[in-house]
Write a protein that binds this DNA or RNA. Sequence first.
DNA 1: TACGATACGGAAGCGAGATTCCGCTTGTCA
DNA 2: TGACAAGCGGAATCTCGCTTCCGTATCGTA
Lengths: 171, 171
Amino acid sequence: MIEAGRAAFAEHGSEAQMEDVARRAGVGVGTVYRHFPTKQALAEALIEERFDRTIAYVRALLDDEPDPWRAIERCFEYCAATQEQDRAWAAVLVLMAGGIGGMGPRQHQMQELLALEDQLIARACKAGVVRDDLTAADMPALFCALASVVQAGDRNWRRYLDLLLDGLRPR
Amino acid sequence: MIEAGRAAFAEHGSEAQMEDVARRAGVGVGTVYRHFPTKQALAEALIEERFDRTIAYVRALLDDEPDPWRAIERCFEYCAATQEQDRAWAAVLVLMAGGIGGMGPRQHQMQELLALEDQLIARACKAGVVRDDLTAADMPALFCALASVVQAGDRNWRRYLDLLLDGLRPR
DNA sequence: TACGATACGGAAGCGAGATTCCGCTTGTCA
DNA sequence: TGACAAGCGGAATCTCGCTTCCGTATCGTA
């Protein structure tokens, strides 16, 4: 069920249709509604899950990636990869750039993610591998930008990512 | 009439409603449909106009802005400013990053715009003020990225633009 | 096996918008 | 002034998805 929702929302973003979700799950729409009261609720559950996995990834990065620059690079690469697989997730990251407010319960997860980014950046800053005015507050816009390029279907988003990362280097 | 369409699409993007357009124009929906057979047709007309103005602006930049770096900077600033005013235009630039194909008659205008960008970049490249691997082919992704940040409602898109521009400087 | 509770499927109900259509108004010409 | 054409307004129509609801199927228990 969740599985079907994941697939449908990943492919169509918020345009995903409840009937499509039901079909993929091999059940009727009524059954989908018995688990999630509205389409919005289903979408939220999926996004929450995605946030959790992202937070876990970045946390692991802090523990396991000794190279501060490489950690930042990998963080963006992970973002791009998940955004490519998941249209709904990309859309959420785009919205997040508009300010955390309004995004209800996801607000807390975003703050948690940004707190981790902050550590990533602090480490890189201290090592002198990123510009010294970079902060976690810059991240939402960067994720938003990356998400839209990836989602637009630019086959060569890797190139855009290179330009983005170069902009983060010390001047 | 066109005027009303501009306002409605600028404010709501493709979500603009025909009835809203009619109301702003002070006419009935039937009258709007007498001038534009579909909502899509109206949207296209507005985008064509926007492309024309943008092309004219960049052309003027080539003629009147002697500083090659400043010309590039002004080009992006103009983009951001128009994207901020016009939601539909921002959406088109986001889509363009996915490849010019499919965008029908706008294809030609996009190519014209990119040809001008090419000159802007060549000039800047020769002057050594931008990284030497930058090409006009990088532009769609950059415009797309900028558009999404501006449209997400990030009050401080200027900061993102600074990071973007720094990424274009010689390494 | 009979009975109530629970879960299911999917048709029907609805709301939102785009598009169509027809009766009315205005302006022109004889 | 009267007949006709062109333009107009906006109610009615259509389409598309989300959501609701009810008859049916399944399961656990006496």
